[in-house]
Amino acid sequence: MRIDVASATVLTLLADRGASATICPSEVARKIAAKASANGEADWRAAMPIFHAAVDHLVNRKDIGLSWKGRPLSARSGPYRITRANGSL
């Protein structure tokens, strides 16, 4: 799995949700793992490193935001949710 595929998955899931919706990191990792697997049943935990790299890349580009319990986060740390950046998408 490549970082561009993981990044596209994050952005697609956000675009498919309401403007104020957030997505869970494990939800994205499950999607990425399913895309990488021939039968759609790969271990999503194995996709987490590439997913984290994609999230960090998207945050640095300001394409997405991160939050926890409604408070914005400046970087990925501990539990978090993925949000749209400045109402984009």
Score class of each variant (00 low, 15 high):
Ala19Phe: 02
Gly78Val: 05
Val5Gly: 09
Ile23Phe: 03
Thr12Met: 03
Ala33Ile: 05
Ala38Val: 07
Gly18Phe: 04
Val59Trp: 08
Leu89Val: 08
Arg84Lys: 15
Pro25Gln: 14
Asn86Thr: 12
His57Arg: 13
Leu13His: 07
Ala19Val: 07
Val59Asp: 08
Arg81Thr: 09
Leu73Lys: 15
Cys24Ser: 11
Gly65Phe: 10
Ser37Asp: 14
Thr22Met: 09
Arg84Cys: 07
Ile82Thr: 07
Asp56Arg: 09
Lys31Gly: 00
Ala46His: 05
Cys24Gly: 12
Gly70Thr: 11
Leu58Asn: 08
Arg30Asn: 00
Thr22Cys: 10
Ala36Thr: 02
Tyr80Glu: 06
Gly70Lys: 10
Lys69Asn: 14
His57Cys: 04
Ala29Met: 09
Phe51Met: 03
Phe51Asp: 02
Asn86Ala: 14
Ala42Trp: 03
Ala42Tyr: 00
Ala21Asn: 11
Ala19His: 04
His52Ala: 03
Arg84Thr: 08
Ile32Gln: 07
Asn86His: 15
Asp4Ser: 10
Ser88Trp: 10
Ala29Ile: 01
Ser74Ala: 11
Asp43Trp: 06
Pro72Ala: 08
Ile50Ala: 02
Arg76Leu: 10
Asp43Ile: 02
His57Met: 13
Pro79Asp: 12
Ala42His: 01
Thr9Tyr: 00
Arg84Asn: 05
Met48Cys: 12
Ser20Glu: 15
Ala53Lys: 02
Pro25Thr: 10
Trp44Asp: 01
Lys69Cys: 10
Arg84Tyr: 05
Glu41Gly: 05
Gly70Leu: 08
Gly40Arg: 07
Phe51Ser: 00
Thr9Lys: 06
Gly40Trp: 00
Lys31Asp: 06
Ile64Tyr: 06
Leu66Trp: 00
Thr22Lys: 10
Arg84Trp: 02
Phe51Val: 00
Ile32His: 06
Ser88Tyr: 11
Ala19Gly: 04
Leu89Trp: 09
Thr22Gly: 07
Ser88Ile: 05
Trp44Met: 03
Leu14Cys: 09
Thr12Asn: 11
Arg17Val: 02
Tyr80Ser: 07
Asp4His: 12
Thr22Ser: 14
Ala46Tyr: 05
Thr22Asp: 07
Gly87His: 15
Tyr80Val: 06
Ala53Trp: 00
Leu89Lys: 03
Gly18Trp: 00
Val59Lys: 10
Ser26Arg: 11
Ile32Tyr: 05
Ala85Tyr: 15
Tyr80Lys: 08
Ala46Val: 01
Asp43Ser: 11
Leu11Ile: 09
Ala15Ile: 07
Leu73Cys: 08
Leu14Thr: 11
Ala46Phe: 02
Trp44Ser: 06
Leu66Asn: 00
Ala38Ile: 05
Lys35Asp: 02
Gly70Gln: 10
Ile50Leu: 03
Ile82Gly: 03
Ile3His: 04
Leu66Arg: 01
Glu27Arg: 12
Asp43Arg: 11
Ala8Glu: 14
Asp4Asn: 08
Ala34Val: 09
Ser67Asp: 09
Glu41Leu: 15
Lys31His: 01
Val28Asn: 01
Arg76Phe: 04
Glu41Ile: 13
Val55Ala: 12
Leu11Ala: 06
Leu58Pro: 08
Pro25Tyr: 11
Ala6Asp: 06
Asp43Gly: 04
Ala75Val: 09
Arg61Pro: 02
Asp63Lys: 13
Pro72Val: 07
Tyr80Cys: 14
Gly40Ser: 12
Ser77Asp: 12
Lys69Leu: 14
Ala8Ser: 13
Val59His: 07
Thr9Phe: 02
Gly70Pro: 04
Gly87Arg: 15
Ile32Trp: 02
Ala54Ser: 13
